[in-house]
Amino acid sequence: MMDNESLKTLFFETYHGEEIVNCIQCGSCTASCPLASMMDYGPRQLFALAREGFMQDVLSANTMWFCVSCYGCTVKCPRDISITDHMYALKKMAIKHDLKNPKSKMPMMYKSFSDPVKKFGKITDTSVIFRYAFFHPIDIMKNSRLAFNLAKKNRLEILIHPIKNLKGFKKVMTKALELEKK
């Protein structure tokens, strides 16, 4: 695991996290956040920790995994900090530096989404849910009534029609991943 100081440098320099030094800790982000009640720290407190260098605490928090990308915080921030983008950055850092929070189910949700994209270039709701169900079956069982309802209305698309130039698409994505790792 990287030390706090290097993680902070990475967050500030590679991911433009440096703008959080402008934060006045007003909490309008946390107050606008639809899922703040679930978070270990609200975004406000997360930034307070990050700028003082407690990056390991930050990256092992569940906060960013509860971000639903509604941008409610970003448009209200009196210091114009692009909070949602920082949440993305912290998620990416947590994954890359292996600090991802085991308490959150979201990494699995994202994986269930990106797997069919990698394979077919597209998703369907059903393809994502099926994959996710494999890891968290209870969440799906709780929604059996919905599944039944959708099936009845012919809205469960089990099959994904892959994109036509799948071969080319895969080459593009392989290249992108290659550049990502550099």
């Binding site: 800790q25 909490g27 309008s28 946390t30 107050a31 703040a36 609200g42």
Partner: peptide, 11 residues
């Protein structure tokens, strides 16, 4: 009225 009570850490 919705706000974070930043000292009590509660929305």
């Amino acid at each position: 009225v919705v706000a974070e009570d930043t000292l009590a850490r509660k929305v």
